[in-house]
Amino acid sequence: MSDLSKAGTSTAEGAWLAPSAHLRRRNFFQSIAVNVMRIGTLVTALITTGIIFSLIPPTIELLGEITTQVFGTTWAPLFLPPEFGILPLITGTFVIVIIAMFIAIPFGLAAALFLSDYASFNVRRVVKPILEILAGIPTVVLGLFGLYVINPGLVEKYWPIGESVGYSAIGAGLMTGVLTLPIVASVADDALSAVPRAMREAGFALGATRREVATKIVFNAGISGVVAAVILAFARAFGETTVALMVAGSYPKLSLNPGDPMQTMASFIGFAGIGDQPTDSTGYKTIFLVGSILFLVTLVFNLLGNRIISRFREVYE
C-alpha cells in the first residue's frame, strides 16, 4: 500500500514501473519456491530412471547365460544346477491377481456406487473413513490373517483339491483382494462423486430410477475414473509381496489350482532378497531378472490403462 503511494511520487522517468522493495522480496521467494519444485521433480525422475538402469546390467548378464531356459516350467534358480523356467512365477502371479480382482472389482465398484449415489450424508461420513482405515492396514497383518485364519479355517476345510501344506494361492488372492478393495472403492467413489449433479437430475427428469441413474448415467460419465481405480488396484495386487509370501508360500509350483501353494514374481524377490545372495552370484542376478520382468509388465499395464482412460475420458464442460 505504502509502496504504491511512493511509486506514484517517484520522479525518475520510468522508475515508477520498476519493482518496489516489497515486490523484489516476493520475487525472491517466488524463485526459491520454483527451484524447490524443480528439484523435487528432478529427484523423482532421477530415482525412477536410476532404478530402471540398475535393473538392466545384471538382467542382461544373466539372460546371456540362460536364454534358452526362461520358457521352461521349473523355477529353481537357487538350486544346483539352477533352472530358470519362469512360467510357474507367471501363473502364480496371475492366479493370485485374478482372484484378488474378483474380490476387489465387484465389491469395490458396488461400494463406490453405493457411496456416491445411494448413501445418505451420514452413512457416507461413517463409511468413507472406514474404507481408508482398511486401506491403511499393514499388509503384514493381512498376511498373518491369511496364513493363520483363512488358510487353515477356510481353504483347508472347504477347498476340495490341492496340497494341504498351510499355504494357498486362493488365500493369498483373497487377502490381496481385501487389500485392493478399498483402493477401487475409494478412487472410483471420488470419480463418481465428481460427476455433476446436473447429469443425475437430467436422468431423473426423464423418469429414470435411482439405479438407472447410477448405473447408466453416473457410471458411464465417470468411467475414466473407474478404469483408473481398477488399474491402480491391479498394479497394486501385481506388486504385492508380503501377502503372497506369507499366505501362498515360497514354492514355485506350476499349477492353476488355487488350493496349491504358489510363488509370485514379487514374492520370489522378497524371498530370495532376504536370503544370502552373494553379489554377482546367479541368485543375485536372478532377482534383477525377475524385477525387470515385473517392471515391464507393470509398465505395459500402466500404458494400457492410460490408453483406456484417454479413450473414455469425457469432458463435461
Binding site: A198, M199, E201, A205, L206, T209, K216
Partner: peptide, 26 residues
C-alpha cells in the same frame, strides 16, 4: 412432467443415445 435445466446438461454420450436414454428406461 419433464424438465430442462439452466445449463445444458447432455449426457456424455452420442446425440442418438441422449435421446434414446429416456425411451429405453421407460
Amino acid at each position: 412432467i419433464g424438465m430442462v435445466f439452466q445449463k445444458p446438461n447432455p449426457f456424455p454420450k452420442s446425440i442418438y443415445e441422449n435421446i434414446a436414454f429416456g425411451p429405453k428406461v421407460n
